[in-house]
Structures are given as C-alpha cells and as structure tokens.
C-alpha cells in the first residue's frame, strides 16, 4: 500500500470552450476505513484559479497553506492575481524544494489565463509538470479516470455540457475505486461565473 493511497482521492480537470472544470471526490479515509464524506480537495487560489490536491491529506493541507501564503505575498508585490502558468511553476518549485522528503501530493492546477484561455496541468509529488490540452487526472482513481475521460471527452464543450461530462467521468471512475468516492465536488469556471456543485454518488 503506497502512502499516496493512504487517504484515497480522485481529482480531474477538463478543458471546455473558454472554460474549465475541476472535480474531485469527497472521501477522507484511513486506508479502508472512511472517516468523513465531506472532505474538500479543491481549493480556490483566486477567482479564476483553482487547485485540486490529491494524495496524502495532511500534506495536501500543509501544501495548501503554503500556497495561500505564497500567493498572498505575490499579490502584495504584484498587485494582481497570479497567472495559472506562473502558479504552476510556483507549485512545482515548492514541491521540488522537498525533493528528498516530498509532500506526498499530486496537484492538479486549473485556471483561466490571459484572454481567459483555459490552462490545466498536473504534476508529480516532486513537481514535474505535465501539461495537457484536454484533461488531466490524479489520485487513486487515476487509472479509471483516464479511461472514462478518454471516452467521454470532446473538444470545445460549453459549460453545462462540460459539467455533465466531467461529472459522469468522475462518478464512473470512483465506483471502480475502493478508496475514493462518496460523492463529488465540481467547479465549472467560465470568464463570467463560477458554478460549484456537489454530486450525490453511490454512498458506499
């Protein structure tokens, strides 16, 4: 049993037409025991930038606190929010700082950049970035998420269709993974609005 699979998680980001979706499951477990079904894995950095942290929950919480701290410093210095690309480099640097004793997290970064161009990216626990045009996945359900996203994704979806697609992909995937599930949490971010929805799933 890997330490990445200690708490269980599933995170997925998908790109649509001038928008993106970021979704996660809601389970917090310790191995096979479920502790809570309302655990947050997606965090807001600013209005157009979100990060999903899969992996070891304690490291996700520590990492999130450090990211918020660094983003606040950035905002004070630059007097604006951070660009998703820059933020990805920041996360990568923070992770690689701990190269020989990493945070056991696999982050998913999703944001709207300049001209509201969607940006999604994931990285491993030591900060190797993996950029994608369509979708990225992370967590214990990542294998099944790849399959579901691969078959359901199509380019240039509108927000509502994107929501349906990412939700169906998430729900289909977590049902094949013992360590994630118990509902979902979906963010759809467009240039003008953010839609946040919680999903009811198989609650077992």
């Amino acid at each position: 049993m890997s330490i990445f699979e200690y708490n269980g998680s599933a995170v997925v980001a998908m790109v649509g037409k001038n928008c993106f979706a970021l979704a996660s499951d809601r389970r917090l477990g310790v191995q096979l025991q479920t502790l809570a079904t309302d655990f947050q894995k997606i965090y807001k950095i600013h209005d157009k930038l979100y990060v999903g942290l899969s992996g070891l929950a304690t490291d996700a919480q520590t990492l999130y606190q450090r990211l918020v701290f660094r983003h606040k410093l950035y905002q004070l210095r630059e007097e604006r929010g951070i660009k998703p690309e820059t933020f990805a480099s920041l996360v990568s640097a923070l992770l690689y700082e701990k190269r020989f004793g990493p945070y056991f997290c696999q982050p998913v970064i999703a944001g709207l950049g300049e001209d509201d161009k969607p940006f999604i990216c994931t990285m491993d626990s030591i900060g190797a970035k993996e950029l994608a045009k369509d979708f990225v996945v992370a967590g214990t359900a990542s294998e099944s998420l790849y399959g579901a996203c691969e078959s359901m994704y199509k380019p240039d979806m509108e927000p509502e269709e994107l929501f349906e697609t990412v939700s169906q992909a998430l729900l289909a995937s977590v049902d094949r993974d013992c360590l994630s599930g118990w509902g979902g949490h979906v963010f759809i971010v467009t240039p003008s609005q953010v839609i946040e929805r919680t999903l009811k799933a198989r609650m077992d």
Partner: peptide, 23 residues
C-alpha cells in the same frame, strides 16, 4: 514493490525512502 508509476523517484533512492519519517 513500487506499484505506482509516480513512485519511480522513490524507487531510484530506496535508502531515502527507508529513512524518511513519513514514508
């Protein structure tokens, strides 16, 4: 046994893995 592809770094440094407090 490293079962996850993301663990490849840990596999390269098995000694580190054993001494790391969390691992």
């Amino acid at each position: 046994k490293a079962t996850h592809k993301r663990q490849s770094n840990a596999r390269l440094f098995p000694s580190l893995r054993r001494t790391h407090p969390v691992a």
